[in-house]
Design a protein around this nucleic acid. Structure first.
Length: 570
RNA sequence: GCGCCCAUAGCUCAAUUGGACAGAGCGUCUGGCUACGGACCAGAAGGUUGGGGGUUCAACUCCUCCUGGGCGUACCA
């Protein structure tokens, strides 16, 4: 769409003698297709020129004539509506996609830039719930999106493998642990112990001190505690790996919190040198009152470290190690105050790059009226969700397409795709309502709907049979849906950039749904031998299949950016 | 108490960041395969955008107050 915006902005600027770029940012896409393809609202001009917007629009409309990009311009009240030359747009986008193929929409705007994305970061010894999935899926998608734009991305799984909870876990395991259970179902057993110690601590406050001292010993290097910790950690990592494999998610680094404990002293020294540390209530803090924030705790009264301590160390380490241009933390919205404190602390330490750190937050997953949380014990396990969606997909596949060569892998692709898509189909900050019925419904606005549309196009191309030639005639693509589709395809690169800028993969999901909507309408509306895609007129068929193939390429690409696979048959 | 966030169709979510008539899916009702895949498509019903006031050419969007909810707010992460 960029070339058209540019072109129109230039024309308008030429007439009124204003700044091109300013005009360009004012251009918008009208709410309905019959109002043209791009619109210029004259309100702001009206202020400068002290004339009624309708009059300006009228004048512009008359002065802008047709050329090979613009078919016509027409005033509509205070707007000037521009109608792009359809044949120009269609052939431009088809040529572009056919030459770029799977790289359509790729760019090099990020080349030479490093970005760190921290995501997933589950806690060792806690089950992977459907709530944790959001960070994983959003982060993994952002990684793909940024790589597509030429950035060098380092993805980090900042595992929660250190902290007070390990004192609890060690204590609980010593007293109630079961070797057999631990090996059979490590996370299940550890979680059971975790829940139990929490309950018991409520009844017996003395336990709190005992578990805290276990952590202190761990942090001081007690070998027995370290052995246990390492075992818990290894077993959990192994379990998580299974989940990541299913989801098709991977990381460049899996350095968890524990990695940074030996880097804490240097951080503390630098904090002390800048006189940022303060003793308060027996603990060590950074006072942030000047910045209207509560203090951030650096050391507890028993002298053990906290997540903030380790996060400061991690940020500084990463800056040294990767020299990132940007670092984003994909972490739930509950932590937003904490990240403001963290970034402010980094800044106070003299790190001018603190500005380049972003908290990419996301909302809760609700179960009924409640927020899902491990602490409350009302979580839905990701493994159960994946198992059920895959099973459901298998049922449907068996019923609808009994002779698929590999039904199991298709069922997996669809079941998992449905789960991933659900998390990416609304804005990050909205809370998601988890609902089994909806999760298992593969119709409507869903991942499988997009996969289905993609498979359908693949099927048409198979039926077409011939080698796809690069020959097509834009003059034969005159149906309104063909133009709408082409127009969407033109916008795909813009959508990717928007998704990256706002850290919102949902823009891509939304775009894909819309594209599928148009294609499916097109597909079903025209059924006569001549009007359908595989038209009896072979020239027309060539052109239509070519356009459909472009849509296929974009659907495939978009799904990939979301981390969802696109089977050719399903 | 203070801070941040949310409230849009019966339900789940959108709305080009202040723009033209607030749109999709599900659910309800009606219709569509001897054809290119019905995990689909077409149509209908469904809204005073939680409520009041304000800012302006224009408010779901910005300001203010109220109501209802969520999260955070020093030794969890």
């Amino acid at each position: 769409m960029k070339i058209y915006k540019n072109h129109i902005a230039e024309k308008i600027a030429g007439i009124i003698g204003d700044d091109r770029d300013r005009i360009e940012t004012l251009l918008e896409i009208p709410p309905s297709e019959d109002m043209g393809d791009l619109a210029f609202p004259c309100f702001t001009l009206s202020k400068d020129m002290r004339r009624a917007p309708d009059v300006i629009a009228e004048e512009l409309g008359n002065k802008i004539g047709r050329d090979n990009l613009i078919e016509r311009a027409e005033a509509a009240g205070p707007y000037v509506n521009f109608y792009i030359d359809k044949s120009h747009l269609i052939s431009t986008v088809i040529d572009q996609i056919l030459s770029d193929r799977d790289d359509y929409g790729r760019s090099d705007e990020g080349s030479g830039k490093n970005i760190i994305i921290e995501y997933s970061s589950p806690n060792i010894a806690k089950p992977f719930g459907i709530g944790h999935l959001r960070s994983t899926v959003i982060g993994a998608s952002l990684k793909r999106i940024y790589e597509y734009l030429g950035y060098k991305v380092v993805s980090i799984n900042h595992l929660g493998d250190w902290g007070t909870q390990f004192g609890k876990l060690i204590y609980a395991y010593r007293n109630w642990g079961d070797e057999l259970k631990l090996n059979e179902d490590p996370i299940g057993h550890l979680y059971e112990l975790y829940v139990r110690i929490h309950r018991e601590e409520e009844n017996d406050p003395k336990l709190v001190e005992l578990t805290r001292s276990e952590f202190k010993e761990l942090e001081e290097g007690d070998s027995e505690n370290i052995d246990l910790w390492r075992r818990f950690s290894d077993l959990s990592r192994k379990e998580f790996r299974k989940i990541y494999k299913m989801l098709g998610v991977n990381f460049d680094s899996e350095k968890g919190e524990s990695f940074y404990i030996d880097k804490i002293p240097a951080v503390e020294k630098s904090l002390k040198d800048r006189d940022l540390l303060k003793e308060s209530q027996d603990a060590t803090i950074i006072d942030l009152e000047k910045y209207e924030m509560p203090p951030i705790l650096i050391r507890k009264s028993d002298d053990t470290s906290l997540y903030a301590t380790r996060d400061l160390a991690a940020a500084i380490y990463r800056k040294k190690e990767y020299n990132f241009d940007k670092m984003v933390y994909v972490v739930g919205v509950a932590q937003s105050l904490y990240f403001r404190q963290l970034f402010k602390s980094l800044e106070l330490m003299g790190n001018d790059w603190a500005d380049n750190c972003h908290h990419v937050s996301f909302g809760w997953v609700k179960l009924g009226e409640e927020m899902m949380s491990t602490r409350r014990g009302n979580i839905v396990f990701l493994e159960d969700v994946l198992a059920r969606t895959v099973e459901e997909a298998k049922k449907i596949v068996e019923e609808n397409s009994p002779d698929l060569p590999d039904p199991d892998s298709v069922a997996k692709a669809v079941g998992i795709g449905a789960v991933i898509f659900t998390d990416l189909s609304c804005r990050r900050d909205t809370d998601i309502a988890f609902d089994w019925d909806k999760m298992l419904d593969f119709r409507g606005n869903s991942g499988p709907y997009i996969q289905y549309s993609h498979a359908r196009i693949c099927s048409v191309i198979r039926k077409y049979g011939k080698e796809l030639k690069k020959e097509y005639n834009a003059g034969l693509l005159l149906l309104p849906e063909e133009y709408s589709m082409a127009k969407m395809l033109v916008c795909y690169p813009d959508i990717i950039k928007k998704a990256a800028n706002e850290f919102e993969p949902y823009y891509i999901s939304n775009f894909l749904l819309e594209l599928c909507g148009i294609f499916n309408t097109y597909y079903q509306k025209y059924r006569s031998p001549e009007d359908r895609i595989l038209s009896s007129n072979s020239d027309v068929a060539d052109s239509r299949v070519t356009l459909a193939d472009c849509a296929r390429i974009v659907l495939h690409s978009g799904l990939k950016l979301l981390g969802i696979s696109a089977p050719e048959m399903m």
